[in-house]
Design a protein around this nucleic acid. Structure first.
Lengths: 161, 161
DNA sequence: GTAAATTCGTTTCATTTGTAACCATCGAAA
DNA sequence: TTTCGATGGTTACAAATGAAACGAATTTAC
């Protein structure tokens, strides 16, 4: 009851003009990614002193075997300079080796060494366990909605490829 | 039919030991956040040369009126040095002013100036439009699952507060 | 009261990052 | 074949970032 409030176009406080940061999709997504990234990074940082680009490179090579730096970057959505630096460090640790392609000498094939593989075999289950653990914090229905939501966002945001 | 393959514990290629990066939750979340952040950032970067911390600070103050730097950081999940630097730049541009609290002189209250408010009033609708646009790229059911998924993740990952 | 611990916010410094320039190589076109 | 543009990868430089130290003000413990 009562007369509806007159909207004042000059009023910054007009609620329909405002943006609620807490419910704003880019912000929510960023905060979640930041939180999950930080949490999960403990797994590989504390144990092996890996940075995220290094972890991703290791994960890519562990998953796919031999890859080029370009392929690593594409698979893991990393800038090529990040890949380059991560590869350099993993090579320095002797966790991977490079081999120049003989027919196209611009390309180099990256492969995990035995040591690198051993690390991967230790880290991959930890990663899976982390994910399982995270999903275990929610109900099955919630877990399902998470996967569906991610699928929908990927379809809307990452159409290319 | 056929005898199940014997698992070879030394084989890196044993699929159940591998981690598929493309389906790994932290990775998916990070890639999505990165994509959406980049896409949306065009809105405020091209037009106003704002960085993400600056945009968030503006958004916080626009939404809430006067706030302390600490409150800005808490609301927008930013490190206090990021807030400090964003505030310094927004002040330099005369988009906000500081006012020392008289009873506790450690605290300063931040408020948008008229110019700052004007920018906010231009940017907030653009942000909402971006979000609406993104959701319009999917079906209503997909949009719903996105929100449900985010809710579930937040409940699992950000219990504090 | 005073000393110690805490809080708000800034600054310093080392690290990480991205852009752009770069080098080497390759493929296509002339 | 020479040249020109594209490609794989690295490097140089500047900007953004975070950890830690800091200064000033406040609160707590004694």
């Amino acid at each position: 009851m009562g007369i509806p409030a007159m909207a004042n176009p000059d009023d910054l406080a007009a609620d329909d003009q405002k943006l609620t940061l807490e419910t704003f999709l880019p912000y929510r997504l960023n905060r979640l990614a930041d939180a999950i990234s930080r949490e999960f990074a403990k797994t590989y940082r504390e144990r092996y002193g890996l940075t995220r680009p290094q972890w991703r490179t290791l994960a890519g090579l562990g998953q796919n075997g031999t890859m080029t730096a370009k392929a690593v970057g594409e698979q893991s959505a990393m800038h090529k300079t990040k890949v380059s630096r991560a590869v350099a460090e993993l090579e320095r640790r002797k966790w991977l080796t490079r081999r120049r392609n003989t027919t196209d000498r611009r390309i180099e094939h990256l492969t995990l060494t035995r040591v690198g593989e051993a690390v991967y075999r230790e880290l991959a289950p930890l990663a899976k366990a982390y994910e399982a653990d995270l999903l275990a914090r929610m109900s099955p229905a919630q877990g399902k909605s998470v996967l569906q939501g991610l699928n929908a966002l990927e379809a809307a945001l990452l159409p290319r490829r």
